[in-house]
Design a protein around this nucleic acid. Sequence first.
DNA 1: AACCTGACTTCGG
DNA 2: TCCGAAGCCAGGT
Length: 124
Amino acid sequence: MVASQDHGLAGIILKQNPRQPFTRRVIAAIKSVPRGRVATYSDIALYAGSPRAARQVAWILHAMSGKEKLPWHRIINSWGKISLPKAAGYEEQKELLIAEGIVFNQEDMIDLKQYSWMPKIKKS
DNA sequence: AACCTGACTTCGG
DNA sequence: TCCGAAGCCAGGT
């Protein structure tokens, strides 16, 4: 979906907080996702300045969602589906998203084209 | 203090 | 087209 080679896109949060550690930037990116929209792990990683750090984003969510009060439920995988195992919050996350007006299709998938939080960033 | 692991993605064989 | 493996980072053990 997004230009994997677009350097202007990657690092927008980094530019805003150049001295903050990766984790901090990821948290900032997650917090900026508005209610009723979703973002993928890679989107967050991209905005945090590390396009390939999707995995770390997942880790951070797992470890910090409680303390930082993050809208963790708005983060989903690139297929538009919930990655959380059903035994570990899948249903809860789905409920939270539905409560924000997000719709799931028959395959429990979210239409990223409609709900994905992807601010347009013009090339610099 | 070193090593392991994870709610992921993407690229190469 | 399908499967294996690397890339990325930091808290836990």
